[in-house]
């Protein structure tokens, strides 16, 4: 067990060092997952740092990140392993004469002909890894069922080869946007972590960490505005990543104040739908009011 995973506080500290500000529950759950050897199921709206949590955990512990991006129609062949069919065919052709059936059969179902896919490579790796199964809710229920063996026992059964057990204990994270109810069986095997948009102070700290040059007053105002925008009924509310982008954009533009005009000009960084932009300009822009004093010199474009 890596030294960083010795207590919830040290996890929080370690994550902070690699630029991820985890709140107390996040650090606690990450710590428990490492201690108990259980996967974490992370749910929450898009853009609150679910995937980033896995990346940061990997970076913090110095492990390799093995990532499996899920999508509709993902199957064993792409997630677990596949027989290298062409190589097998060539092999059969190469020794078409003389070799007995059983010899050939033994030959062509060896690990030489196995193409490792993310899940298999995660558990067969000699060093412990961080395995990220991203957007598990995008797959079919059948795929979830297939994961169960891996998640509870860290092993994969290949009919021709037998059981492959994990040689090292991976830290597994599953993320979901909650677009589909996951099965009870899967949930049962995981620790559950709900990530929501951060509290104001917490987000302020995150922005401070990632855009340190920005003026403190503007930064606070920015975070407040983003919180205000999230309260509107938008198609795509701004995520944490977008707050950071916005802070950096303002820094780059040398903005001295966040007034209605600045908002209008830079809104496209945080709001990504035309209808949303209209709504934000209408509701939030008015609250900000026009620039207080005459702006001397437009921001450098």
């Amino acid at each position: 067990m890596a030294a960083e995973l010795a207590s919830a506080e040290s996890v929080a500290q370690g994550l902070r060092e690699v630029g991820y500000l985890a709140d107390a529950p996040t650090a606690l759950v990450s710590y428990l997952a490492a201690q108990l050897g259980k996967p974490i199921l992370v749910e929450g709206p898009a853009g609150v740092g679910k995937t980033q949590l896995a990346k940061s955990l990997a970076q913090m512990t110095g492990r390799t990140l093995v990532r499996l991006q899920c999508y509709e129609g993902l199957d064993e062949a792409k997630a677990l392993y596949e027989w290298n069919y062409r190589k097998q065919l060539l092999r059969i052709q190469a020794e078409a004469e003389g070799a007995g059936w059983s010899a050939v059969q033994d030959d062509i179902f060896g690990s030489e002909f196995l193409l490792e896919r993310p899940l298999l490579s995660a558990i067969s790796s000699p060093d412990p890894v961080v395995l990220l199964i991203d957007e598990i809710d995008k797959t079919d229920q059948e795929f979830e069922a297939m994961l169960l063996e891996l998640l509870s026992d860290f092993q994969i059964t290949i009919p021709e080869l037998g059981r492959i057990e994990a040689s090292s204990m991976p830290l597994v994270l599953l993320t979901s946007n909650n677009s589909r109810e996951l099965t009870e069986a899967l949930k049962r095997r995981c620790l559950y972590l709900w990530l929501d948009y951060p509290e104001l102070e917490h987000e302020l700290e995150i922005v401070r960490l990632h855009a340190p040059g920005l003026d403190e007053a503007i930064r606070r105002r920015l975070v407040e505005i983003v919180a205000m925008i999230r309260d509107l009924d938008l198609k795509k509310p701004p995520s944490i990543a977008e707050s950071i982008d916005w802070a950096r954009a303002l820094l780059l533009l040398g903005a001295r104040d966040l007034d209605e005009r600045t908002l209008r000009e830079t809104m496209s960084v945080i709001v990504k739908h035309r209808t949303d932009m209209d709504l934000v300009a209408e509701r939030v822009g008015v609250k900000l009011g026009p620039p207080q004093e005459a702006p001397d010199g437009a921001p450098a474009a």
Binding site: A8, A24, P25, L28, V29, Y31, L32, Q35, L36, L41, E43, N178, E181, K187, R188, C190, L191, Y192, L193, W194
Partner: peptide, 26 residues
């Protein structure tokens, strides 16, 4: 299994530990 591994006499920790193991949806 989780409780002995955390400082469970702190209320917030106790609560979060139980929550992460017992409650699995929003």
């Amino acid at each position: 299994a989780a409780l002995p591994r955390v400082p469970w006499h702190e209320q917030a920790t106790f609560r979060e530990t139980l929550a992460t193991t017992l409650a699995k949806s929003p």
